[in-house]
Simulated assay, not measured.
Amino acid sequence: MKPLFNSKRILVFILLPLIFSCSRRNLGYFSNYGEEKVLTEAITLNKKQPVIQSGDLLQITITDSNPAAAAPFNRISSNSSTTNSSTSNSQEGYLVDENGIIDFPILGRIKIGGQTKAEAKLSLTNLLTNYLGNPIVSIRYLNYRITVLGEVRSPNTFLVPSERINLIEALGMAGDLTIYGKRENIKIINEANGVRTVAQLDLNDKAILDSPYYYLQPNDIVYVEPVTARKDQSSLTRSNISLFLGIVTAASLVILNFR
Rank of each mutant, 00 (worst) to 15 (best):
E169N: 09
F244N: 09
T237Q: 11
N134G: 02
E225F: 10
E191N: 15
K206S: 14
S211N: 09
I189S: 04
Q233L: 05
Y141M: 07
I247P: 02
G175W: 05
R238M: 14
K182N: 14
D220H: 06
A192H: 08
L127M: 06
L236I: 08
I146K: 05
N134E: 09
L209T: 10
E169P: 05
Y180G: 12
D205F: 08
D220G: 04
D202R: 03
P218D: 07
R230Q: 11
V198T: 15
V160D: 01
S235W: 15
A207R: 14
Y215G: 01
N190M: 06
N130C: 00
S138A: 13
L216F: 06
K182D: 13
V195F: 13
P161Q: 05
D202Q: 02
A229E: 12
L209I: 14
R238C: 09
N204W: 06
R196F: 03
D202P: 02
L177S: 03
I179S: 11
N130G: 00
L245H: 12
N185C: 10
P226V: 10
I189L: 07
L216Q: 06
P218T: 13
R145G: 07
V227E: 08
F158K: 02
L128I: 00
I165V: 13
P218S: 08
F158D: 07
P212A: 06
L245N: 13
L149E: 14
R196Q: 14
V148L: 00
L132K: 02
I165T: 07
P226L: 09
Y141R: 02
R238I: 14
N166E: 09
T147Q: 07
Y144C: 06
G194T: 06
L203V: 07
N143I: 09
A251G: 15
A250V: 11
E225M: 11
L201A: 05
V137L: 00
V160M: 01
N166L: 10
A174L: 05
P155S: 01
L245F: 14
S242T: 12
E163T: 03
Y180K: 14
L128F: 00
L132A: 01
D176F: 06
N240V: 12
L159P: 10
P218A: 08
V248Y: 10
L243A: 12
V227R: 08
N204D: 07
T157N: 03
P135S: 00
D202V: 13
R238T: 12
N143K: 04
A251Q: 11
I221S: 02
L209D: 03
N204G: 08
G194S: 06
I139P: 03
N204K: 11
V198S: 02
D202H: 02
T249S: 15
K182M: 13
N240M: 13
